[in-house]
């Protein structure tokens, strides 16, 4: 009696866990956490809430075509986006929909480097990067 229930439970829980967890993403977050502690000794951890605020914030310092992350990624990270400058389709940023997101440090750094400059008009801090990834990992 218990066994079928356990099986059903596992079948529901496992794919979700497998999609959300990725050791490579954990390593990237740990790297940013190390950088964050150097910048701010009071840093205690990343915040999905701050990541969401960053995702939705409107800026004026960057390219007028990309005043926010949502300009390309839409208001919903789980839906496909579109590059506001080139029209190219963009896979959803939400990790639950695109599990390979934030699993390659070189790619992550390249994309933050381009997008932070384009949206905010400056580089993102390690805390901002970690917050953003933490938000997307829960989406």
């Amino acid at each position: 009696m218990i066994r079928p229930l356990l099986m059903v439970g596992l079948m529901i829980a496992l794919p979700a866990a497998a999609m959300a967890a990725d050791a490579r993403r954990d390593t990237i977050l740990a790297d940013y956490a190390g950088q964050a502690r150097k910048v701010d000794p009071a840093f205690t951890g990343f915040s999905a809430q701050r990541g969401e605020s960053l995702f939705r914030a409107k800026w004026t310092g960057g390219d007028a075509r990309t005043p926010s992350c949502t300009a390309c990624h839409t208001d919903n990270p789980k839906t496909a986006g579109q590059n506001a400058k080139t029209g190219r389709p963009i896979e959803p940023v939400a990790v639950s929909v695109t599990p390979k997101r934030f699993t390659d440090m070189a790619e992550v750094e390249k994309q933050f480097g381009r997008d932070c400059k384009s949206v905010i008009g400056r580089e993102c801090s390690p805390i901002e990067k970690g917050d953003y990834i933490t938000f997307m990992a829960g989406q």
Binding site: Q82, N83, A84, K85, T86, G87, R88
Partner: peptide
């Protein structure tokens, strides 16, 4: 809205 720019050939 699918086009965005003239260089978006695949649109």
């Amino acid at each position: 809205p699918k086009v965005v720019t003239k260089s978006n050939c695949p649109a």
